[in-house]
Design a binder for these strands. Structure first.
Lengths: 208, 208
DNA sequence: GGTAAAGTTGATCGAACGACAAAGAAGTTC
DNA sequence: GAACTTCTTTGTCGTTCGATCAACTTTACC
């Protein structure tokens, strides 16, 4: 780490956090470099020098997002003892994160760029891949439940259940962005969990 | 309808349909007037003369969307004999519409502008209002089920159930945009409907 | 202190944005 | 066919987009 030359006067992590809040609120295309430069307190040229292009900056922002807002739901999946508790805790942790008073509502992964101009196709695909990872993570957790013995669903339906709870998470984000509060999301989660026993203990109701 | 003057050489309905497909695919901000003019086969000045501003055009497009793609799910809610059948048919009609091979995947109402630049706030609020109408329509259908006698849920939980199925619809749109096919959405719908009996016939499981 | 390295500033690039004005073209009514 | 109305084309308005360059400043190393 050669410390030659003039050190930068701003803290990259702090600036990245400011960029995160802006991208979260307005989405990828809705946030201009002028907006970013103003919020980060530096000139656009400094953004390019430190972070690369707008797309590079966005990818770094998403990495920060994953290690901050994305961590509680992932930890819930990881640490809860049973698959059912893991899914339930993951949904509640998600609801917590997407209705915090100090950040924009809704999940950035879902809201930042579901559609957009053709020239930003790479960004959309990047986010779509991350969403697919979410599905895989949930699926893996269900499979672990089968291994651990706390879940006895037929393997064929694990895909369906995983996709179902992924769908709920994604729907919750739209709800949060539209103004639903934490209690309303909790009620939705209760409904979503009501399906669990039906899906995992009633062989007379095949799901796929 | 005075037919004075030169009649226009393009069909507004056909042009509106072209605009719909483009807005659907790329979202509001992701679609430029150049894109629209090219797809509609007319100059941008003709767009302004016939439809007003870009925002006016988008609102007209959304009206067309509501009477075309939005109609099957609404009709399902209206015409099915019981609340349960209505919700189930609505979900399936939605899945049909958002995975059609001849249109973009996912619901335009949800994907076109969940986030965006501050200057397009009015458009986002316009769409948010339409999404709220979706919730209200579902809630009304559940209330009708209570009136008709085919649904015995306590009134307090009707809000939660309506919001739950609204959440599922919105999640399905993200799934469809991410490439999930009709069969995968059907599996999700089966999971979502598995919660129904739990929510409407088990007073030991309050949902709100 | 001299010099090299890195950061910041301010100006500016070409392109695209939404929007509109003017003028010509094409039709209808009298 | 004359007068009038409306549409379409062409061009361009001012702005903003993402991105970059040259000049200046500030620091570290020798």
């Amino acid at each position: 780490m050669a410390a030659r030359g003039r050190p930068r006067t701003f803290d990259p992590d702090t600036a990245l956090r400011k960029a995160l809040d802006l991208f979260w609120e307005r989405g990828y295309e809705g946030t201009s470099l002028n907006d970013l430069a103003q919020a980060m307190g530096i000139a656009s040229a400094s953004i390019y020098a430190c972070f690369g292009s707008k797309e590079d900056l966005f990818r770094k922002v998403m990495a920060l997002y994953g290690t901050t807002s994305g961590e509680p739901p992932r930890r819930a999946l990881r640490e809860q003892p049973t698959a059912r508790a893991a899914i339930h805790a993951m949904l509640r942790a998600t609801a917590d994160e997407i209705t915090r008073p100090d950040t924009p509502h809704g999940c950035m992964l879902i809201l930042a760029a579901p559609t957009g101009a053709v020239e930003n196709h790479a960004v959309r695909e990047f986010l779509a891949d991350l969403r697919h990872d979410m599905l895989s993570t949930i699926k893996d957790r269900l499979a672990r439940g089968v291994t651990d013995g706390d879940l006895t669903a037929p393997p064929a339906s694990l895909d369906a259940i995983a996709r179902y709870y992924t769908t709920v998470v994604q729907g919750l984000s739209v709800q949060a962005r539209d103004g639903a509060d934490r209690a309303e999301l909790e009620a939705v989660i209760t409904c979503a969990m009501a399906a669990w026993d039906m899906l995992t203990s009633a062989p007379s109701h095949p799901v796929s």
